[in-house]
Simulated scan of single mutants.
Amino acid sequence: MYQLTFDTQAFIKQQWQKKPIVIKQAFANFEDPIAADELAGLACEEEISARIVVTKDNGWEVIQGPFEDYDTYGESHWQLLVQAVNHWYPDSQPLVEAFRFLPDWRFDDLMVSFATPQGGVGPHIDNYDVFIIQGEGERRWRVGDKGDHKVRGGDKTSPLVEDFEPIIDVILEKGDLLYIPPGYPHCGETLTLALSYSVGFRAPSQQELLTQLADSLIDTNSGHKRFESDSESAEPGMVSQSQQQGIMHLLAELANQPDKYQTMLGQLLSQNRFELDICEGEEALDTDELVDLVSQGASIARIGGLKVLRLEGDLNSRLFINGEVYPLATATEEELLTLANENWLENEQAQQLCGNNEIASLMVTLINQGLYYLAE
């Protein structure tokens, strides 16, 4: 069990998306949820996103996984980073649970890194919020202020930036936490063999929203309204400001029509960037079998990283799960919220929910898809 030692609601009001902060001993008696050799084993798997960053005199070399061995990298100047460890290693999920004071739709993944002395990724800027928790070992972190930071090497697609003047310069020890909002340059340097945990939170960009909205309008054959005006520019080659604004107002109209954006938003926010560890059973269940197993004491759990969301004020009774829409016309709001909020449905909860035939049918579908599973 991982319990944060600070006031999370005060953190949201004072720090969240405002400024970086170091919280010493944010976790008391912190224990690493995964060992270095177990992390190295995950990085050998084809389905898992992993990379090694080697620190060199003139920069950094990035090698993408999977990896067969690590002997060639030596005992210093490199770092292994494994994404979405919470999808593949269930013992890491309790660490993620500690950060559910923030909504699931924002949560991206748990990245775990193993670093040798002098290993790191260089000064860079992220476009998401990150909590860095120090496990075994020590790392020095420097964080700069927001500003016009020069991109390293002139590559505007790279997050790497030139060095900066730090506003935070700290050595993190086991159980310490560093929070960094988007836009703040930062750089980590490993002092001793170290395990670090990055809990990332991400919101959709304008590009992602517009792309998803366009796809949704095409799928539903909607969004056909065109711009109309009662006056025209006297200059044939001129697009007037009022017409520019009127054309763009067509997009603003969609943002005020829940029937146009809610489905799109639920699908977008419930998707994962990284593969899930789908666990389909050998034989498909039916509803009667599920109800029988639950009556015998089984609980129902979702796989690591699966997002189950309910939109407040949704015009429809439904859930959004892994980018898909699941209507539940007979479910109460309380039942919908229970399904959205609980990663693990204890037996009593599972029995109550499966008393609704529509929910029981949904659970069978999700279990057969490998998104949920039966547990003791």
Rank of each mutant, 00 (worst) to 15 (best):
F274W: 09
F274D: 07
F274M: 06
F274I: 05
F274V: 09
F274E: 05
F274L: 11
F274C: 06
F274A: 09
E275D: 14
E275A: 15
L276I: 08
L276R: 04
L276Y: 03
L276D: 06
D277L: 02
D277W: 02
D277R: 00
D277P: 02
D277H: 02
D277C: 03
I278Q: 04
I278V: 15
C279S: 12
C279T: 15
C279R: 05
C279I: 15
E280V: 14
E280L: 07
E280W: 04
E280H: 03
E280C: 13
E280R: 10
G281C: 07
G281I: 09
G281H: 05
E282P: 07
E282C: 03
E283D: 10
E283P: 00
A284G: 07
A284R: 08
A284N: 12
A284L: 05
A284H: 07
L285W: 04
L285H: 06
L285A: 13
L285D: 08
L285V: 09
L285R: 07
L285C: 01
D286R: 05
D286H: 07
D286W: 03
D286K: 05
D286Q: 04
D286N: 11
D286Y: 07
D286P: 03
T287C: 11
T287Y: 01
D288V: 06
D288F: 00
D288L: 01
E289N: 13
E289G: 15
E289L: 15
E289T: 15
L290S: 13
L290K: 15
L290E: 15
L290T: 11
V291K: 15
V291P: 01
V291Y: 13
V291E: 14
V291G: 00
V291A: 04
V291H: 13
D292A: 04
D292P: 01
D292S: 10
D292Y: 06
D292C: 02
L293V: 01
L293N: 12
L293D: 14
L293H: 12
L293K: 15
V294G: 09
V294I: 11
V294A: 12
V294P: 00
V294R: 05
V294N: 10
S295A: 13
S295F: 02
S295L: 02
S295T: 14
Q296N: 07
Q296Y: 11
G297Q: 08
G297A: 13
A298S: 14
A298W: 00
A298Y: 03
S299D: 08
S299F: 09
S299T: 05
S299Q: 08
I300N: 12
I300R: 11
I300M: 02
I300V: 14
A301M: 11
A301V: 10
A301E: 13
A301K: 14
R302D: 03
R302F: 12
R302A: 01
R302K: 14
R302N: 08
I303T: 08
I303K: 08
I303M: 03
I303R: 09
I303Q: 03
I303G: 00
I303E: 04
I303C: 00
I303V: 10
G304F: 10
G304W: 03
G305A: 05
G305D: 08
G305W: 01
L306P: 10
L306N: 10
L306W: 11
L306I: 04
